[in-house]
Simulated scan of single mutants.
Amino acid sequence: MPLFGSLYNGTLHPSIFLLVGIPGLEAAHFWLGIPLCFIYMVTILGNCTILFVVWVEESLHEPMYLFLCMLAVVDLAGSTSVVPKMLCLFWFGSREIHFEACLTQMFSIHALSIIESAILLAMAFDRYVAICKPLRYAAILTNPAIVKIGSLAVARGAILTAPFPILASRLPYCRTNVVPHTYCEHMGIVRLACAGSGVSNMYGLTVALLVVGVDLGLIFASYARIILTVLRLPSREAQAKVFSTCGSHLCVIVLAYTPALFSFLTHRFGHHVAPCIHILIGNFYILVPPFCNPIVYGVKTRMIRDKVANLLLRRKDIPKSGAK
């Protein structure tokens, strides 16, 4: 297969890209694959457990847990779009990724990140309605309303991300096809172009600022109203209970946005940061939230913790009851 052999929309692009992995740590790739595989396995197990528990327990068919299921699906899709190829790179030296597959991975990563941000906003809205407008909770967050929120989250992610691969595919890549990263990330790809990528860079910056700015602003506004409402409660025990119900969601927000903001800032402004730090932060942003989210909700949400324990105890009792 020729390296530079196909035309796409009148521009020259490589048939394949070559992923480097983590620059400077190539010798440690095999060993880095071990914790990566563990993280991926726990991510699949934890998120599938959340989905299964909510599915089988009718008492959990409530907006809060339905949004949590959406988050679990997005986390599974996001990890699966990246980790298998990374493991092939780390363990088997499989560096090649076809141009079209690279663009597809780019679209998946950024679209799922935007969808996850929208779901976190929806979860904050859920807590706001539950605490600040409890009498209208059932009327506002109906099943059709939840379906519409989920559909809008997916549509927003797809629409805002679609220009990324389109703009990237129109750039000529005549200098190199070597990607100094573990996956196809928008900024990492367009920097390889041998023509001006200002439009693509500006669009990526605008989308990032718009999504993070709007979603985080609305999340902060929701929790500001929640805090004011909780502080008016006469009982400290009631205040502690309400804050406890919001604790898991706040932990997930910190896990999702902190590495994402670090990755964004180091890409745009961290020109003196070592390349391996860029890549490690980018991997942290992709891998850690899906790994930690089910653990956080499993530990801090009593209903999920109790349902998982009940299911495990029920399975242990089945052989005993059958023996009788």
Rank of each mutant, 00 (worst) to 15 (best):
residue 244 S to L: 12
residue 93 G to S: 09
residue 265 L to F: 12
residue 147 V to I: 14
residue 130 A to E: 13
residue 45 L to N: 05
residue 322 G to P: 12
residue 119 I to W: 04
residue 223 Y to K: 13
residue 317 D to N: 09
residue 50 I to D: 02
residue 111 A to T: 14
residue 321 S to Q: 09
residue 181 H to V: 00
residue 230 V to Q: 02
residue 318 I to E: 13
residue 21 G to K: 05
residue 92 F to H: 15
residue 3 L to H: 04
residue 82 V to R: 01
residue 34 I to S: 08
residue 132 C to L: 05
residue 145 A to W: 13
residue 206 T to M: 12
residue 152 L to F: 11
residue 109 I to N: 09
residue 25 L to R: 09
residue 132 C to N: 10
residue 168 A to R: 10
residue 4 F to S: 07
residue 80 T to Y: 06
residue 238 A to H: 11
residue 46 G to F: 00
residue 319 P to V: 09
residue 16 I to E: 14
residue 241 K to M: 13
residue 293 N to D: 08
residue 1 M to E: 14
residue 134 P to R: 00
residue 312 L to P: 07
residue 230 V to W: 04
residue 173 Y to D: 13
residue 272 H to Y: 06
residue 109 I to L: 09
residue 32 L to Y: 03
residue 64 M to W: 03
residue 281 I to P: 06
residue 234 P to D: 01
residue 47 N to F: 08
residue 245 T to Y: 01
residue 129 V to T: 09
residue 47 N to E: 07
residue 18 L to W: 01
residue 315 R to S: 04
residue 19 L to P: 07
residue 144 P to S: 06
residue 48 C to E: 03
residue 79 S to M: 06
residue 111 A to V: 11
residue 92 F to Y: 15
residue 112 L to I: 15
residue 99 F to R: 10
residue 30 F to W: 05
residue 188 G to Q: 07
residue 188 G to K: 05
residue 147 V to K: 15
residue 168 A to F: 01
residue 256 A to Q: 13
residue 113 S to H: 08
residue 48 C to P: 00
residue 109 I to A: 07
residue 44 I to K: 08
residue 184 C to V: 07
residue 77 A to W: 01
residue 184 C to S: 11
residue 170 R to T: 12
residue 241 K to A: 15
residue 299 V to Y: 14
residue 21 G to D: 06
residue 13 H to K: 15
residue 187 M to D: 11
residue 214 V to H: 04
residue 252 V to C: 11
residue 20 V to Q: 11
residue 160 L to E: 00
residue 281 I to A: 02
residue 220 F to N: 08
residue 244 S to H: 15
residue 122 A to M: 11
residue 318 I to L: 12
residue 158 A to R: 04
residue 13 H to F: 06
residue 206 T to W: 07
residue 199 V to S: 10
residue 290 P to D: 03
residue 139 A to V: 04
residue 225 R to P: 08
residue 167 L to M: 12
residue 273 V to C: 10
